[in-house]
């Protein structure tokens, strides 16, 4: 498939129907709908336990492609198994795609992800990162940003910051596996789909991390799903970049980042973050942005 140039080029078919029981305005559901436009009907989605597990609910499924839900920590290795099974049958034209949340990816499923990546299995791993365990009601993962209020890092007298752990630098971790990795945003669908397309053309493992903008967990009006996704990129909380063969490329460059304030203020999870927390968060963002700019178009990992 040729790279997509603008939104009008995005294929006009949908392999994810409506009628599922995920929340109104669900970012991860939108992400899957979009990804399937590039992946096409010959695709098996491997899902780990999380919000997206509720897309199908017996006897109905919104999926027009195959789907395997195994458990939470093993989507990558389930995918590896499916790939080996297809290889054994001589079927080469099917995509095996993981669609897993950040808890399943950063935390409980990291061993199976790492093993599948380092063996360069022909699997596209898409992490829809909504920065918490969403399906259980928004608890902290190691993808949760500093300063986020979650159910297991609530703000209170003893700790007004909420989550004080600095999230894992997952792209860097995946980069050292020498696979193609990229971040993506729903507000930049052309960039996202071209990254899926790039992954699809690879004869190996790819890791794409989509900011899984989540109205319910982040506590905002679902109409702002795209607005917030766009702001995340603009303020440097979710920079768009890729690592290919250990080299870094920034995909959206800005002379100056917007301050994080506007992004934070739109979301309930940051509403009560005290000023020193905002300052700390801003400095973390600045530090990461400087690092990405320093290594842009250079060997990064």
């Amino acid at each position: 498939m040729q790279p997509i140039k603008n939104i009008k080029d995005i294929p006009e078919f949908d392999l994810l129907t409506g009628g599922s029981s995920v929340c109104a305005g669900c970012g991860p559901s939108m992400g899957l709908k979009l990804a399937l436009k590039v992946l096409g009907p010959k695709t098996i989605i491997i899902n780990s336990a999380g919000c997206m597990t509720l897309l199908p609910l017996f006897p109905n499924t919104p999926l027009k492609v195959s789907w395997i839900h195994n458990a939470i920590e093993n989507a990558a290795t389930t995918a590896a198994g499916a790939r080996h099974g297809l290889d054994a049958l001589g079927i080469k034209d099917m995509n095996v795609v993981v669609y897993a949340g950040d808890g399943a990816t950063y935390d409980i499923g990291f061993a199976s992800l790492s093993a599948t990546a380092i063996k360069n299995e022909r699997v596209i791993y898409i992490c829809y990162n909504n920065q918490a365990y969403g399906n259980t009601g928004f608890q902290c993962t190691t993808a949760t940003p500093y300063g986020s209020d979650t159910k297991t890092t609530p703000r209170g007298k003893e700790n007004p910051i909420g989550n004080t752990t600095i999230h894992k630098d997952m792209l860097k971790l995946m980069g050292v596996h020498r696979v193609y990795c990229a971040t993506a945003s729903l507000a930049y669908p052309v960039d996202f789909l071209n990254k899926i397309n790039k992954a699809k053309e690879r004869d190996g493992f790819s890791y794409i991390e989509l900011l899984g903008t989540c109205a319910t967990g982040w506590n905002f009006d679902p109409r702002y799903t795209i607005k917030i996704s766009r702001l995340a990129v603009r303020c440097g909380m979710w920079p768009l970049y890729e690592i290919d063969d250990r080299k870094l490329s920034l995909n959206k460059e800005f002379k100056e980042l917007k301050p994080v304030d506007e992004y934070l203020q739109l979301q309930g999870r940051y509403k009560q973050l005290p000023p020193d927390g905002v300052i700390k968060l801003q400095s973390l963002v600045n530090e990461h942005w400087a690092e990405l700019n320093e290594f842009n178009e250079k060997r990064y990992v």
Binding site: L15, T17, G18, G19, S20, A24, P56, L57, F58, P59, N60, T61, P62, L63, K64, V65
Partner: peptide, 19 residues
């Protein structure tokens, strides 16, 4: 066997009451 063999059949599920 707990599999769904009718792809995309959720399209007929009415979610209008959510609105």
């Amino acid at each position: 066997i707990p599999v769904i063999l009718e792809p995309g059949n959720a399209a007929r599920v009415d979610r209008s009451s959510w609105r």
